[in-house]
Write a protein that binds this DNA or RNA. Structure first.
Lengths: 353, 353
DNA sequence: AACGATTAGCTAATCGTTTCGGAGGCCATG
DNA sequence: CATGGCCTCCGAAACGATTAGCTAATCGTT
């Protein structure tokens, strides 16, 4: 039996698409107020009437209209989700956890992707406002000096920042301690005996990347190793530029014996460059990167990574936001910085030279 | 200068959060009908008045309320996005393209993730209905015999299926030709001289996986090679089970000289198992898989894959759905099957034995 | 028996738009 | 000058829920 498209068929409840609360009221011979009260348990309704109302609801196939409810209550139970890049596996891991927490608390997410484009971000923000989202989870893309001011003007709803800070804009925030994570990774590499360690960084100005670079310098400092700018190049958090940056570092004079990529995407470009240069890992070169991901263990050798607690990040971000919506938050912004975890696998070894 | 949380400050337009169309009307000394007409260009308004209205809008900082508009018009310009697994890179690639097309057409996506769980799927579908989504993009998770009937009852809004069919339920659909893609990959492996080729399949009953298995059998058939059930095991589209399936196949008697994974996640498990068994690729074993992904080229050797046209899938799905919403679609469902592309890299070579 | 307190359910206003039908004003025509 | 037909704009009724305020009815107390 082939069931045909149900949307094309008669809905079975009259001409209009949906049964309304008035249909229920009529069917149960009560007022709409009573129906509303029994559905929401917002006022006393005698057991007998409740029974009748529920039966009527069942009979006419009533489903409350969230749009009408939102209009009346001034609250939509929708959260905007404004992402810098939805194809990044770190992002999707975080989103996965956000979706679960939000739905568990009765909220739905409106998905927007800014594609690392500040103009799109602005458009989306405006859209979220006209749709009356109760709040926004934001992975911001901007870096400029006036960015904070522009966002402040645009952001007229409660917001929580994830992963990246906005300089000079104090908002709720959840992020990972990038400096500590990178410091731990570099310390691990140093402990194996390396002294020349290269790093491919994010675009300058983006907090997440800057912190990681700072962690790298701190680790070097700890061993009294001076920072060599020839060993640090920006890969713009993307794999293409990271490929070029890696080659530039390795083809320079006095190349490093180990490399660190400041995010997952750049690790791809780095691995590709290393392969193209005919170098073996960890024989010729040790490698590690920020962000853990499923594929890390499928590589040969399995990649040593700094894992962010993606589940906690997503859940915390949504909870921070919902607390604020509920008025259960102090006025000053709360900033949660979670601890990363170094996962040592096989891609780092003692230097051969 | 630190800009503080703008949501905590005065909104600058009276006590209420937003300026309404009445505020604009009052400020411009016109009726709300005129404001609506100029904002939507839905009726003639003299240039002079238009000017006044726009000025007033600017002055009071008016932004139309999509909730109220939806209630009145009976249309929300929101699409439900009900995914089986948002962390899968194939899914996110498709979602990326859907988001772009939907926003370009003025639609917003409501994100729901069913986590391969039919019960969650049902809950989310109900939620999307109460939120009055105009339509749904669905990557379904169910397989049972009564699944089609349950979905038909639940699905009271236009829907388009992506990637997977629902048996006995005729709906708009966009998918990749899994049989053709797998056939091409297996033919490539056969052409290299392999005769014993193993396959790790998806959960039986899920159309996407079943088709790929069928393509495998067809390719073998073409060379007169009989199907050997010991070489085909289910990995349930997940990496854990795929790891076990791969080991089982390779540790059996008369093991294959080549392996095919029916999706990206299972390729991870497969590569891990191969490494753990101490086998080299493509020296001891050739490997290919369905689904291309960024990491495929970072592997050593770079993986040969069957790429799905993810951009086209996402865009087509949304367009099919919007066409139907606009009434610009025939009653009978349209099914778009796109061609996959075999990307030959380095993970397949002639058998050593 | 009268009165006030309490209770159960209803009436109607409201949220912010869109849109239908009309109301004037203006022009051309006979 | 009356008539009719535009043109512009406005008033008010929806859309489907929630909820403040009200009306009876019931009950206990004196």
């Amino acid at each position: 039996m082939i069931v045909s498209n149900p949307a094309a068929k008669d809905k079975g409840n009259g001409a209009s698409g949906h049964a309304t609360i008035r249909d229920v009221a009529r069917a149960a011979a009560v007022s709409t107020a009573t129906v509303s009260a029994t559905v929401n348990a917002s006022a006393y309704v005698s057991p007998a009437l409740q029974q009748r109302v529920w039966a009527a609801i069942e009979r006419v196939g009533y489903q409350p209209d969230a749009v009408a409810r939102s209009l009346r209550k001034g609250v939509t139970r929708m959260l905007g989700l404004l992402l810098a890049d939805i194809t990044n596996p770190f992002t999707t891991a975080v989103v996965h956890s956000m979706e679960a927490t939000a739905h568990a608390r009765g909220y739905t997410l409106m998905l927007c992707n800014s594609d690392e484009d500040a103009a799109k971000e602005e458009t989306h923000l405006r859209l979220l406002r006209t749709h009356r989202a109760d709040g926004v989870v934001l992975m911001p893309v901007g870096t400029g000096a006036d960015y904070a001011a522009r966002m402040a003007r645009l952001l007229r709803i409660p917001a929580v920042l994830v992963d990246r800070r906005i300089r000079d804009l104090a908002l709720d925030l959840v992020t990972t301690d990038g400096a500590a994570g990178t410091r731990a990774a570099i310390a691990h590499i140093l402990a194996l005996g390396h002294r020349r360690i290269g790093i491919v960084t994010g675009p300058p100005g983006v907090s997440a990347g800057d912190e990681r670079l700072a962690g790298y310098r701190a680790a070097l400092d700890g061993q009294g190793i001076p920072f060599d700018p020839r060993l640090a190049r920006s890969g713009d958090f993307r794999h293409g530029p990271a490929y070029a940056a890696t080659r530039a570092i390795l083809e320079g004079e006095d190349p490093p014996t180990a490399l660190f990529a400041c995010n997952n995407l750049m690790a791809i470009g780095m691995m590709r460059a290393i392969a193209d240069l005919g170098l073996s890992c960890p024989g010729d070169l040790s490698v590690a990167c920020f962000d853990d991901f499923e594929w890390a263990t499928a590589f040969q050798p399995r990649l040593t990574t700094v894992a962010q607690p993606t589940d906690a990040i997503g859940a915390t971000a949504v909870e921070l936001l919902l607390d604020r919506l509920a008025g259960a938050a102090p006025d000053e912004p709360r900033q949660v910085v979670l601890a990363p975890r170094l996962i040592v696998r096989d891609s780092c070894a003692a230097p051969s030279r």
